[in-house]
Design a protein around this nucleic acid. Structure first.
Length: 289
DNA sequence: CTAGGATCCTGTCAGC
DNA sequence: TGCTGACAGGATCCTA
């Protein structure tokens, strides 16, 4: 669900809300959503800083424990204090009473404000770890560099390990490039003029370079705008829409005209995921899936 | 080792 | 209305 730009937006938002606050109590409503050390070890502590790696949030406590959060498909972080901050998967959960039916874990701070971890499908989790567990965490250890820390050479070499696979599956692989999910995979392929089902062996170095630059560009733009789902905007006519609608070139635009050439955007299935592309701007090759 | 499909879980929607 | 299957902004596990 939330991809790198959405998680970065959450990181920035939470940094304004919960830093230096003391965690008075942690309520775990779903055992599956809490991993690692016992929650007691985080109660009474303060949150010193919040980092992000790929789609993972990393919160450091004042006893040098780390609370990792991964939202997976449907996770949300909702802060309720004097003002409200919500980030993650868009649904109505953030307008319900809190805790709501999808609340899995929540935090009560010393000043009475609260932070809710909501997650409809329970794929996401919070994990409390010490420094050693952090360095040994399988996901973090295998995670590839952030998109803007990858050189074209490095990206190219990582792609070459999957020459028979389709390009979309490979950029969704967090060991190849960090933070790319279904939206930015489709948007990045569009910017590079690459059909998402293209075999890696058929991708040129120039195309790989365009893909990496496209991913960085689309993610940076999304971060600058507060994440693709964070803010509704109001159109000139006063009707509301999601930011994603305005920002996406292909994602969820099936049946609509390509913004570049006017051809109808197609939705299909590639790498087991719903996939959107423009058949003219992203032509299929003979060996493509 | 890679590639691709099943799987975890809950909810919604289209089509009988 | 009630049922059924497909699908969903992710990652891991299993099999070939």
């Amino acid at each position: 669900m939330p991809e790198l730009p959405e998680v970065e937006t959450i990181r920035r938002g939470l940094s304004k809300c919960i830093l230096k606050k003391q965690i008075k109590q942690i309520v775990v409503l779903c055992d599956k959503s809490w991993r690692g050390l016992d929650k007691q070890r985080a109660q009474g502590r303060k949150i010193c800083e919040i980092q992000r790696r790929g789609k993972a949030l990393l919160m450091r406590l004042d006893n040098d424990l780390w609370l990792m959060g991964h939202l997976r498909m449907t996770g949300q972080m909702i802060f309720i204090g004097k003002e409200k901050f919500a980030g993650g998967h868009p649904d109505d959960g953030c307008v319900e009473e809190m805790p709501g039916r999808h609340t899995r874990v929540y935090f009560e701070f010393d000043d009475g404000t609260r932070l809710f971890f909501n997650d409809q499908r329970k794929f996401g989790f919070l994990k409390l770890m010490d420094e050693l567990a952090m360095t040994e965490d399988a996901f973090l250890r295998k995670l590839a560099p952030e998109p803007w820390d990858l050189t074209t050479d490095d990206f190219w070499e990582r792609l070459q390990r999957h020459r028979q696979a389709v390009i979309k599956a490979v950029i969704l692989d967090q060991q190849v490039i960090a933070g790319v999910g279904n939206i930015y995979a489709d948007e990045g392929c569009f910017l590079a003029g690459l059909y998402p089902g293209t075999r890696v062996r058929a991708v040129s170095r120039e195309q790989a370079d365009a893909l990496l630059r496209g991913i960085c560009e689309v993610m940076q733009r999304s971060i600058d705008s507060g994440g693709s789902t964070m803010k509704d905007y109001v159109r000139a006519d006063g009707t509301k829409g999601s930011y994603l609608e305005k920002f996406a070139q292909v994602f969820r635009r099936e049946g609509r005209a390509c913004r570049k050439c006017g051809t109808e955007i197609i939705k299909t299935r590639v790498a087991g995921r719903g996939t959107h592309y423009c058949p003219k701007c992203q032509p299929r090759g003979a060996s493509d899936a």
